[in-house]
Amino acid sequence: MIIRDVIIRKLEMTMKNSFSTSFGTMKTRQFLIIEVVDEKGNKGYGEGVAFSIPWYTEETTETSLHMIRDFLVPMLKGKTIQHPDEVNEIFKSIRKNNMAKAAVECAVWDCWAKRQGLTLAEAIGGKKEKIDVGISIGLQADFETLTERINQSLKSGFKRIKVKIKPGHDIMLLSQIRERFPEVPLMADANSAYTLDDLELLKQLDQFNLTMIEQPLASDDIVDHATLQQQIQTPICLDESILSAEDARRAIQLGSCRVINVKIGRVGGMTEAKKIHDVCQRAGIPVWCGGMLEAGIGRAHNIALTTLPNFAFPGDTAGSNSYWERDIISPEVIVQDGTIMVSKLNGMGYDVDLSEVDHHTTRRIEIKL
């Protein structure tokens, strides 16, 4: 496969509901869509999931666009790609910038799967015909609003509820949730809001029978998390700390976690996500697929990834209508009774609605290779 054309689109879409974490609040979502076209005219799509502000990783929408346009796409020129795994190797000389790499690599994966007559799930070795999904609920203005969101999510059949916590908005909140919803599979996401100075507070999490506590300590830490995991019964799930399969191996060796969240964008693409899955599977550490408030293309890639066997917990891949009035794919991602049926169409399994894409596009760059 030879990539002949690459189109970079920057989009901005308004979310149905504001989403708040310990970092801040988001109402509009900027992101990139990468379209690659091979020498036979096959098209593949990837989604750049960096935020407009570098509060999750150091990347932003604009830095990703710069890296893709000026470094990553030129590295594909003249290359014959036999398998998408090769893109991971081609990009290895570029340090980090994982979300930029993932956007391009996922587009190549989609194009290659279509070229081979495979679903993306089949192309990566996935077997599941449907996946279980949970939902991530951001910080809310008050407990009644949160309760309403949880009730709506449970009525929709979501298999797991994730809530955001931060200092001053944690133990009392979880206590109230558990009082109202004693049996609901519940996890809490701290987005690195705590330190080991909060050890006594974090020990109190054990009373809530949480599925896991996600990334309680620093975003680049695996040492202090190992200390914390020794002190609490609640399983720690690492998110921001895991950027590669090597990071996963080290964290497991240190005992830093009992679960790992895999995000395609955070780890640099589908190939590295598969490697992390395999490392964790060999070690008996379950994984699950996190969300980055993706539009439909990123959501479709997440569905494919979750068909791998070691994805043991429901992921954050909720349906399109949980976040958008209208998504940019057709059909939209639909959740029924807490599950998503894996599309049997080739590639990522969904058509891109280019008219809807154009409606939200604020910048378009076409590169001929």
Rank of each mutant, 00 (worst) to 15 (best):
D337C: 09
A107F: 08
T61R: 09
L210S: 06
N42G: 10
L293W: 03
M187N: 06
K43P: 10
H83L: 05
K114C: 06
R29F: 06
G46M: 08
M75H: 01
C111H: 12
L254V: 11
N346L: 04
I329G: 00
A113E: 03
G125C: 09
F158M: 10
M292A: 01
M187K: 05
S64P: 02
Q116F: 02
P167C: 05
S156R: 15
G125I: 10
E325S: 07
P216C: 10
A100S: 11
P167Q: 01
T57Y: 10
D189K: 04
I367S: 03
S244K: 04
I276Y: 06
I3N: 01
I33L: 15
I328P: 03
T63E: 10
K101P: 13
G78C: 03
E179P: 05
H359C: 09
I232Q: 00
T307M: 05
G319R: 10
E246C: 01
T306P: 04
I161Q: 09
I177H: 06
A103I: 02
F91K: 04
T361L: 03
A304L: 11
N346P: 05
I236K: 08
G46E: 10
G44W: 06
E122L: 10
D70N: 12
Q140Y: 12
L205F: 14
G134L: 15
K27N: 13
I264H: 02
I150Q: 07
W55Y: 15
N302T: 08
V357C: 09
D278G: 00
T227W: 05
T119Y: 04
E35L: 10
L139H: 12
A123V: 05
P331I: 04
A100H: 08
N302I: 09
T339R: 12
D5M: 11
L293E: 00
M292L: 03
A283P: 06
L199H: 01
R266D: 01
K275M: 06
T307Y: 03
N261R: 09
I260A: 06
S322P: 01
E366Y: 01
M172A: 13
E129M: 02
I165G: 07
S136I: 08
L201G: 00
V87W: 08
